[in-house]
């Protein structure tokens, strides 16, 4: 197990490098220079050159990269062109909102998805299975942000159960926090649940066809003993991978869902920065979010190895 963890941590480090390179290259690919964007259209070439020299972007590209990387590692991701504030500070103020609804969405998605998938997979072809399969097909097709709007309309506007707008921090009021992220979490969680349920169903159904299940049955174990002790762990193996991929999708959807519920999160900042071509902010965002995803994938990989002895013991 320790060997598995070390090897996963070691393979993660180069991945983080790739993300920083992608983020850095992104700014270099932009036609023109940052200095031209900062200065007005009428700026003289001399003024542009002077600003470029001041910002250090006239130096060789590798020097720039390592310089940028060194500051990034110290928590300095530059100053946003549009918001006119340090990127680290901006992200520091908004990431908790996004993290809250991503966490909520994953909890809803994984619990609901696993339960539905297991129940359906145990009896493929049954009425319950067919109902949940239809539900899952519809669920994966729903745009999370539209689902969010429908939830806001029904549970928020009509029934007045949850706030439709705004965010309460956990420190202010834990209950208020839960209240403010519930609708967004449901909007993110339901399509994820549908996908996870689908995967779990087919995985469970496949495992139940396998020879070792028949062997356990021939040894007289009961249905529940077989499902709980033998089928579940094996069926989870491919589902863990799907949950890992799903996390990235939920993070992406969270950016959009934030807009629906007017939550002051990373996504809204990102969208504004993108439309304003605020490359410095976008660059910082890519590094932070990309880094988070890669770190999360590392954890998923470790869980996968924990479930699958073929990966762990070899």
């Amino acid at each position: 197990m320790i060997r598995l963890i070390t090897s996963r941590v070691l393979t993660t480090i180069p991945l983080l490098f790739v993300v920083t390179i992608l983020a850095f290259t992104m700014v270099q690919l932009m036609p023109g220079s940052i200095a031209e964007i900062i200065l007005d259209a009428g700026a003289t070439p001399e003024a542009i050159a002077a600003l470029e020299a001041e910002m250090g972007i006239d130096r060789p590209i590798l020097v720039q990269y390592f310089d940028w990387l060194a500051s990034a590692l110290q928590g300095d991701l530059g100053t946003s062109l549009f918001f006119n504030a340090p990127v680290t500070e901006l992200i520091g103020g908004s990431w908790r909102v996004t993290a809250s609804i991503v966490l909520g969405g994953m909890i809803v998605g994984v619990t609901l998805g696993l339960i539905l998938g297991i129940v359906a997979g145990l009896r493929p072809g049954s009425l319950l299975d067919r109902l949940s399969t239809i539900g899952a097909s519809v669920g994966v097709s729903l745009p999370a942000f539209w689902l969010g709007m429908l939830l806001a309309l029904i549970l928020g506007v009509r029934l007045d159960l949850f706030p439709v707008i705004g965010y309460t921090t956990f420190a202010e009021s834990p209950l208020g926090w839960l209240h403010s992220i519930t609708l967004a979490s449901l909007a993110l969680g339901i399509p994820s649940a549908a996908l996870i349920a689908r995967q779990m169903r087919s995985s469970m159904a496949n495992v139940l066809q396998s020879s070792y299940i028949r062997a356990q049955r021939a040894m007289g174990l009961t249905r529940w003993q077989i499902v709980a002790n033998h089928a579940l762990k094996n069926a989870m193996i491919p589902v863990v991978t799907v949950i890992g991929f799903r996390l990235a999708v939920v993070v992406g959807s969270a950016f959009i869902v934030e807009t629906v519920f007017v939550l002051p999160g990373l996504g809204r900042q990102m969208a504004t920065a993108v439309t304003q071509q605020d490359l410095i902010y976008v660059q910082g965002g890519v590094v932070v979010i990309g880094g988070f995803i890669i770190f999360a994938n590392m954890l998923i990989d470790i869980i996968y190895g924990f479930l699958n002895p073929k990966v762990r013991v070899s």
Partner: peptide, 12 residues
């Protein structure tokens, strides 16, 4: 493995 929207943000 990265969120599609994130990459789209970068490209746009």
């Amino acid at each position: 493995s990265l969120p599609g929207i994130l990459i789209a943000f970068g490209v746009i």
